[in-house]
Design a protein around this nucleic acid. Structure first.
Lengths: 196, 196, 196, 196
DNA sequence: AATGAATGAGGATTCATTCAT
DNA sequence: GATGAATGAATCCTCATTCAT
């Protein structure tokens, strides 16, 4: 029963449904940026604002805040998968792409070892799926007898590197990530986004 | 306007400075428990409540929420230092104590590689000091030519293990922590708190 | 900026005015159901969704949320009128039909004694008209010297019964309605919808 | 982690805990007034504003919106009980007091025959208790062989009268209420608040 | 004529922080 | 020194309503 008292004098353009997909993408991009600067707990309104859309749009596309984070993650994971699917993909190179995402969006995989305590089973399940997809992508390329061949070895190492990643600038974070891989005795290709 | 209806209801006794210290400790204990169950973003009121004191007391002892977290950390660090100061302290054993804290309070070191971005320089500086204290304590015991001898190697490894730690129960977290150390080729003593 | 990526996706057919009327009916039916399950404050979007139409259609047919409610009421009133217009209509039977509507859509007449205070004069006027139509329909059949013959007696009684109607299931509500009429010393026919 | 960016320049007086009870009362009074003018769905912020307190205070005293409504009801019920407990209380007089509350706060007993559908078991249970208290208070005074002696007769009648009560001014509502009781063949004493 | 995305105001709710007592 | 109520800004979230297509 809560009607706006005044009929909303001038209303910014409604560009119609065609932009829906574009908006969704804009939201994901905005979310990634906001997460980078303000962390995963950043207000959703900030994300909407940066994406240049109303808050309602955010809620239309993502039911809750974890859905946003998952969508960002999904993007990252997809890139890793694409890198792994490339013709001449080598393990070290895909690891480089993965590492790039670790450094670029500190949020990445932040969910993958979710606090555990708090529940949110739905989101957790989703995160597990994403984690599994990363693992599959990597494992296919894992050389015979590699240090990380042990079951769980792969994702444990990824979690460890993600723990090592931290710092004010991407450069610092990259440096630490590479040092971490070296400490694990694992060779990494160039740290960069896929494509290329 | 405010006539005191009842002549001095009953006012919690003021037990003087003796209790002040006790309160501070109770707050830190409470904070650790709350952090464990609800994460670092738990409301301060919950901490005060669990400590059995008013919120004002919390603010008397800690200027803001990071101060509380730092105080908890401080405790953890102190225990590591004590373990390292023990007569017959061995590197692996101290690592075990450190690891116990990593698994017990997931918050531990959560600050140490704080997002960096957002500022809070004061807290950051404090965290750096704590990090340095852990490093000194460990490095003194580091055997000649150990894998982690390289400058930064030590704390990088700790960060990595802290990244690996995650899971619903402490047992799971311990298991993962140990696996992480193994992956680093580092031997760890029993994972347990320090007992004088 | 907005290049149409796909050359005319597929656009819901425009079935012309024939469907418009069907849509209106569907909306009223949907509204009745939604009101029954979620109350008069249910979101309009829910009504449109259940009717299987876009929200725009709802607004094409009804200027605002009260218009929807009024339309539903209108339906109810029409049925009572039809019952009263039947060849062999008896007062008690029409009362039965009216009672059925009271129990079936608790919303019914919810508007008729609207809070009054808040204005919405337009809707109020409409409700008064509907109330008047019910009254006329009933009064024509009112036996000479009936308990409710007094001016206002009729609609007052209806309001009273509607106040008594409440409960989790239609059966409970019917039971209470019948009890209420009995308490008023008024005989009611079978409680059921009108069937031409 | 959401600190106010600016430390709240000037802060209205905090009059200390002593006013807590006064605030609670003010909230109930405010709620009654707001309910009267805007209905039970009025924004809680309006109630807080009218009570002259911050919204937080409202939430401190009442966990949710039904708690507020219940508190208002509780007050009404208490008055009826007091009227019934008076030395020379007569059934008709207590009915008058009850009726006064029905006309004064249209919300009264609005909850007592709650929509049923929506659940809210807690609130419903509370409402049932209140309803029971009203019934007991009245039944004790019910003359032998009264029209409303039948089990349920009493509260059914109350519900009916409450259904009849509606209108722009209290006078109108009182008039209708009295007419409703007359239609039920029940004598009512003067319609007024208790005490007197 | 229909669709359904977008807008954005409004209301709910939570908490960090202050402060009278 | 302690208490815990009050404040109110910030955030979350929902929906009525508009409008490009």
């Amino acid at each position: 029963m809560a009607q706006p008292l005044e009929p909303a004098e001038r209303r910014p353009a409604n560009h119609g449904p065609k932009v829906a997909a574009r908006n969704r993408d804009a939201l994901i991009v905005a979310a990634r940026e906001i997460y980078a600067t303000h962390g995963l707990d950043a207000p959703l309104s900030a994300i909407a604002r940066r994406a240049g859309v109303g808050q309602g749009v955010l809620y239309r596309h993502f039911p809750d805040r974890t859905a946003v984070a998952i969508a960002v993650l999904e993007e990252n994971v997809r890139q890793v998968e694409q890198a792994a699917a490339a013709e001449d993909a080598a393990f070290a190179d895909v690891l480089g792409v993965l590492t790039w995402h670790l450094t670029e969006s500190a949020a990445f995989l932040g969910l993958l070892h979710a606090n555990g305590a708090t529940g949110h089973t739905e989101a957790l399940a989703h995160a597990l799926v994403l984690s599994g997809r990363v693992e599959s992508a990597l494992r296919r390329l894992l050389p015979e007898g590699h240090r990380l061949s042990a079951p769980d070895g792969l994702m444990l190492a990824v979690a460890m590197v993600s723990g090592a990643v931290g710092g004010p600038t991407r450069e610092v974070r990259e440096h630490r990530a590479v040092a971490a891989w070296r400490l694990l005795g694992v060779e990494v290709g160039p740290v960069r986004p896929f494509e290329g």
